[in-house]
Simulated assay, not measured.
Amino acid sequence: MRRIVGRILEGAGFEVLEAGDGQEALGVLEGLDGPPELACVDWNMPVMDGFTFITEVRRRSEWRSITLMMVTTESEMDQIVRALAAGAHEYLIKPFTGEAMLEKLDLLGLLPTSTGV
């Protein structure tokens, strides 16, 4: 799934970095010179789940500008509400199409107008 999301994002002009779980993703963020524009997060990850990752990102002032999108199979309304309340900007339920992801990115203002989405 990371490869699929990565290809969609690369096709939209994003540089993509990957992590296998939330803890690894925090390490990736710490190694960057500045915050990335976007982080796509799955709720169900080993070591540190996506909800905990979002909570940790939002605790750090230097990462508050990161747009967070939960991309997950979890479709229960209470989980969607929890993720958004914790600081996710958008929630995309798997399975999804590349077009659906691009529409979410467009709504977030992250796509150049030339994409035609």
Rank of each mutant, 00 (worst) to 15 (best):
E56M: 04
L38W: 06
I8C: 01
M70D: 10
E37R: 15
W43Y: 14
E18P: 01
L38G: 05
T52Y: 13
G22L: 07
E15Y: 00
I8D: 02
V57P: 01
A39G: 07
V47E: 12
E24T: 14
M45K: 13
T52M: 11
F53P: 00
F51V: 13
D42F: 01
E24Y: 12
E10S: 12
R58Y: 02
A12T: 06
Q23H: 06
R59H: 12
M45Y: 08
G50Y: 01
C40F: 00
P36Y: 08
A39H: 04
T52E: 15
E24W: 10
T55S: 15
R7L: 03
R59F: 04
T67K: 15
M48R: 13
G50F: 02
R64Q: 15
L17M: 03
A12H: 01
V16D: 04
L38D: 06
V47F: 07
L68E: 14
M45V: 11
L17C: 01
A39D: 08
L26E: 05
V71K: 04
V71I: 15
F14G: 12
S61H: 14
G11I: 06
G50M: 02
V16W: 09
G27A: 00
T55K: 14
M69R: 05
R58A: 07
W63Q: 03
V71G: 10
T67M: 06
M70C: 07
R64V: 01
R64G: 09
M69Q: 13
D49L: 05
R60A: 14
L68M: 14
L68C: 15
E10R: 05
R64S: 06
E18I: 08
L68G: 05
D49Q: 09
E62G: 00
V41P: 10
I54M: 06
C40M: 10
A12N: 05
A12P: 04
L38H: 06
R60H: 10
S65D: 11
V41F: 11
E10N: 07
N44V: 07
V57Q: 02
L17A: 02
I54R: 12
S65F: 03
R60P: 08
G31A: 14
T67Q: 15
I54L: 11
G20K: 14
E10K: 10
W43S: 12
P36H: 15
E30Q: 10
R58G: 00
N44K: 06
L29M: 15
P36A: 11
L29V: 09
F14C: 10
L68Y: 09
D21A: 03
G20A: 13
E15W: 01
G13N: 05
G27E: 10
L26K: 02
I54N: 02
M69P: 06
V28T: 08
M70V: 14
G34F: 06
I66D: 05
V28G: 02
E30K: 11
P35K: 01
I66Y: 00
V16T: 14
P46S: 00
L38S: 07
A25W: 15
N44Q: 08
L9M: 01
R59E: 14
I54H: 09
D33M: 00
P35N: 09
E15D: 02
M69I: 15
L32R: 02
G50I: 07
R7D: 11
E62M: 06
D21W: 03
V57M: 11
E56V: 01
D33V: 00
A19M: 13
R7M: 06
E30A: 12
R58K: 12
S61Q: 13
R7I: 05
E56I: 04
M45E: 07
